[in-house]
Design a protein around this nucleic acid. Structure first.
Lengths: 209, 209, 209, 209
DNA sequence: AATGAATGAGCTTTCATTCAT
DNA sequence: GATGAATGAAAGCTCATTCAT
């Protein structure tokens, strides 16, 4: 067991963290290499970043790459705890996981949305490796519910979008405007989503009869 | 002597249009004054923009101001056509209006999301004059439905977020990734949203009994 | 008669002149864009050069291009005044022309010698369009002399190098060391070259007999 | 206990060799310390050079110093083998020595020519210790030939320039353009030079009569 | 002796903005 | 009103050099 297991030099990691933070906050163009260096504890505008990365762009690419790698592993966790037997309990668990997930990964979503024009290839890759799989996961879960009779048999993919979107918007709006949308805190948001889902499921069952 | 309401010189308007287009597409920092001039048919990098606006920032501010002024007038249109008597018809109408609304105004949303750090005051103003009122309108409509017994009596404001979010995410995702989310076209999306709302309403009625 | 015959904007020309001067003196790498701007009367380090040229390299390329275009036209002038009937008079004329030619174009030779590694394509082009033709011209003149019996019949091309080289070295050495080589002024140099050529010619005539 | 004259650490020598090679090829400004380290087998951009030299400039100075020291010893070798009795044999020997000498030392000449503006003191020193003595040596040899009646009594110093220049230009041109000038190989060049010298000498003898 | 990391200085280039025409 | 030129202020990146290991 040699250097292989040694912690990566903290500077490199600090630069990646700074990049994620600042690129999401101000955008790629508005974040200078000096900003990144300063945020990572290096002397600003001295070019120290270039000991660790080939360019400013390379920092972005590696930061996003790390996210996607992580995302591929983590995405499904919440769904794997199912079923719990009680639909309301399940939905609450899912909602909590959804809020937590986007709260943790809002930065990546912002970056994608902001840098789409400059790095189309990156955004495309993120879509294929992170966004599409997430919606597919949600659609699969809905499909199962439909087959169990909890939800109306319908277009599971389209419904996944309808049902999952609020988590995205809720997080992004909060970051954009600096406060919960319409000042509705997370608990109220989660409760409303769960209520709606439960009503939807119940209506489906009734409607089928 | 011409009238005060004479059409503004087309160049000015073309610059505003260009600004909206390019700021939304590439962001404020990545759009140069030369880009704006070229897009507006002026000679690029010649400074012609400064005959019409004091600065690049002034163009952004005026473009957004025009949007908000317009938004204040238009927002409620769809809701004012209600009620139609048939809930499914009403919801379809609302969904169509929602898709059209965000399709038309996605640029403004993008700009707000992207320039929040640079122009916090602008974003705050947009929130108060355009975003909050839109959610309030939705909440008010839901409140009325609840009072009519079509929906479960619940937190109308929180539900408004849950119910309106999909339109935002659907549009932004489409712009970000260059195609409809999960390749679900607008008709499928609208149908799914309406179905969910109907099931939700039906479930509410049943659940109340 | 419109703008076509208008003098080219002086700034552009002044930048080209500055480039030739400074690139020859300090080399391309050691000459900053700010140096060029300052030498051309622009505000240094303000980027004014970029209104006229795409890059520092483009300035070099255009400056050399202008030289070669000019060289192609001028090279042969002195030889075209021949014959004068008197070999010593002819040789003196040629020597004077040679000294003047390299004195005027030493800068280009220096630049080629110095930037060969960085701009191999440029140097190659200069060789083909300016250097090779110059030697060919000398060789042709020698060939004619040989055919007239003034010089020994021999390898005219190789002899051209032997005979023309001194002008190059004399000029370059002077620029390099800041004074005439071995403190031999141009008149002594020219006289020595003519004497040697005359002796050579005479020896040839005798030798042939 | 090792002797004072122990071989210097090879790294130091390798750095000096690399410096000569790269400075001559790309120039001082275009050669980075990292290039030197890499060429000398050190880890590039790690600053290893500074264990052996105080600065990049110090490497240049020492490399040139070594050359001049060597030159002072070697310059005269060929001339010391004279006389051989046969003028053509002598001249051929001299020409061969000349070609070999400049072929070996072209790098130093290039460096002087290129770095004259940046290191005027260095160039001045080289001139005094290497260039002027070389021309003086040639002039002295010519003087002796004149006194022996082989050459016309004339300005030996000026003639030395005329007669020695071709070796310089031939070598430098070859390095600059990557091939023998006018594609005249060394044998043809040497033969032409010897022929010209012989004709010159013969013409002188005849002319004197 | 050698190396990885860090830093101050400087370079090429871009850009928002101004001004004379 | 529009344009070409000019300029101050960065910004990305390179590099000579230093330092701790």
């Amino acid at each position: 067991m040699t250097t292989a297991s040694a912690a990566p030099p903290p500077t490199r990691q600090r630069l990646l963290d700074a990049a994620l933070e600042l690129f999401a906050d101000r955008g790629f163009a508005d974040t200078t290499v000096g900003d990144l260096e300063a945020e990572a504890g290096l002397s600003p505008r001295a070019g120290g970043l270039y000991k660790h990365f080939a360019s400013k762009e390379a920092v972005l690419r590696e930061a996003l790459e790390r996210f996607v790698s992580g995302a591929e592993r983590v995405t499904g966790t919440a769904f794997e705890l199912m079923p719990l037997g009680d639909i309301r309990a399940e939905l609450t668990l899912i909602a909590r996981a959804g809020v937590a997930y986007f709260s943790a990964n809002g930065k990546f979503i912002r970056i994608m949305q902001q840098e789409r024009a400059r790095f189309p290839d990156l955004v495309k890759e993120m879509y294929e490796r992170a966004v599409a799989p997430a919606y597919a996961l949600g659609a699969a879960w809905l499909q199962r519910q439909m087959e169990s009779g909890f939800f109306p048999r319908a277009d599971a993919q389209a419904l996944a979008i309808v049902v999952m979107s609020p988590f995205v918007t809720y997080q992004i709006d909060q970051e954009t405007f600096g406060r919960p949308t319409a000042d509705v805190g997370p608990e109220r948001f989660i409760a409303a989503w769960v209520d709606a889902m439960v009503a939807c499921a119940r209506g489906a069952v009734q409607g089928d009869s």
